[in-house]
């Protein structure tokens, strides 16, 4: 199988301070991978590296011909201004950005597709509501509807189910599995290990370095998780000191 992202000894970080070191491996085309690890283990940093927002400090990261616009990226919620005066419909229509861009008008078909996407995430009657009136769970549904329209072959999700109700989480997981069924490549940062075991074929465990990467069955064992947790407590002890290099 061809790889969508291949990493060769990649180190990523900010201001020359590495957040995650020496990752080697690849995300196969059409794979559905969960990224797990303790807080501060570099999971979000890895996604930012994959999408190209952070250049590797060291090593090689290949996207194998993918453009940035072929990758849909769902950041953690804090990065979007949820009080902004925009309607749910207008927000979803942004998913068509690749075709409408700055200037082209939205066609009737595109509007219909937006309606279908809202239906698929259970927001049928909300199209004229202001975004600010949505709950956290509804807002997450809205972001998923927008990603449906983006129609990207590669999808990166940063904690898509954090801080939302279990029903929304279950509904949106179905959407993710649907994308997997359509052959898209998906990488999701997750916390709920049970959910990972049930639904995600592949798992990558990181704790500022690679702990394990492969089939979820083999990777999510007690030994790996214990190691990840130990790595986490080691950094906590050093938290006040400057990074090593």
């Amino acid at each position: 199988m061809t790889a969508v992202f291949s990493l060769q000894d990649v180190t990523l970080g900010y201001d020359r301070h590495p957040a995650v070191h020496h990752l080697t491996g690849s995300f196969a085309s059409g794979s559905l991978t969960a990224v797990v690890g303790p807080n501060g283990s570099g999971k979000s940093t890895l996604l930012k590296g994959l999408i190209g927002r952070l250049a590797p400090l060291d090593g090689r990261l290949e996207r194998n011909g993918l453009h940035q616009r072929d990758i849909a990226y769902l950041p953690q919620q804090a990065e979007i201004d949820r009080s902004f005066p925009i309607s749910v419909m207008d927000m979803v229509l942004l998913g068509h950005w690749r075709t409408i861009g700055l200037f082209r008008r939205v066609t009737h078909d595109q509007r219909a597709q937006a309606g279908e996407a809202l239906h698929a995430v259970g927001l049928d009657d909300f199209d004229q509501h202001p975004v600010a009136s949505l709950s956290a769970g509804q807002f997450q549904r809205l972001l998923f509807a927008r990603m449906m329209l983006q129609n990207c072959p590669v999808i990166l999700l940063d904690e898509p189910f954090a801080a939302i109700d279990p029903r929304t989480s279950a509904d949106l997981l179905k959407v993710v599995l649907g994308w997997h069924g359509e052959g898209r490549t998906i990488v999701a940062v997750l916390h709920d290990l049970e959910q990972v075991q049930e639904s995600f074929p592949d798992t990558l465990v990181i704790a500022r370095e690679l702990i394990a990467w492969g089939a979820t069955r083999e990777v999510l064992c007690a030994e790996h998780l214990l190691r990840a947790r130990q790595m986490a407590s080691v950094w906590d002890d050093r938290a006040g000191l400057p990074p090593r290099r």
């Binding site: 999408i51 927002r53 616009r69 979007i80 942004l94 950005w97 690749r98 700055l102």
Partner: peptide
Amino acid sequence: GFLRASGGP
């Protein structure tokens, strides 16, 4: 963030 990720100017 969305604009950047979609390659907008």
